[in-house]
Every structure is written in structure tokens, then in C-alpha cells.
């Protein structure tokens, strides 16, 4: 029973230029109640936070606690 690769838009958007995950920051990943954010390594080898799992309560600790205002919480498309 193979699994499909169905695309989905994600509500949490991270501005790579502002994100300081490369300096070791993981605040947004740490505070998320649903644990849906992770740190990715970009093509140039630097790191940035991103939303890995589309399981968002649009509650906003990630946006509120980000030290550089890099995170924006949009409403999930299904309910916006």
C-alpha cells in the first residue's frame, strides 16, 4: 500500500533572510505546541526554520517569540 505525495500549502512562513537558525536559534521549533517546525539546511549550507508538518493551530507562539520577526502565521487555506 504505497503512500501518495499530495501537496499542501503550509500556514507558517519563515523569512530566510531574517531567520537566524544558522546561529543556533531554535526558538520557534522549541515553542510550537504541535511540534510542526524544523530546521532545514539550505543549498548554500546555511540553516533556516521551516514548517515540516501541516498540523497548525494558528496559535502564534512561533511568530510572537521569534527574536528577529522572521516568522509569519497565516491562516490554513482550508479555513481562511
Amino acid at each position: 500500500m504505497p503512500l501518495a505525495q499530495t501537496a499542501t500549502t503550509v500556514p507558517v512562513v519563515v523569512d530566510d533572510d531574517l531567520c537566524i537558525a544558522d546561529k543556533g536559534c531554535t526558538v520557534c521549533v522549541d515553542v510550537c505546541p504541535l511540534d510542526v517546525l524544523r530546521i532545514a539546511v539550505k543549498d548554500d549550507g546555511t540553516k533556516t526554520a521551516y514548517m515540516k508538518y501541516d498540523e497548525c493551530w494558528y496559535c502564534m507562539p512561533c511568530e510572537a517569540d521569534c527574536p528577529t520577526d522572521a516568522v509569519t502565521v497565516n491562516l490554513p487555506y482550508l479555513l481562511k
Partner: peptide
């Protein structure tokens, strides 16, 4: 299930 169909679009904190 919320009528939006979004599993985490609940009234309560979805965790």
C-alpha cells in the same frame, strides 16, 4: 471534525 475539514482547526488547542 471542524466543518473546515482541517484536522487542527479545532476550538481547543489541537495538542
Amino acid at each position: 471534525l471542524p466543518t473546515s475539514g482541517y484536522l487542527y482547526g479545532t476550538y481547543e488547542n489541537a495538542s
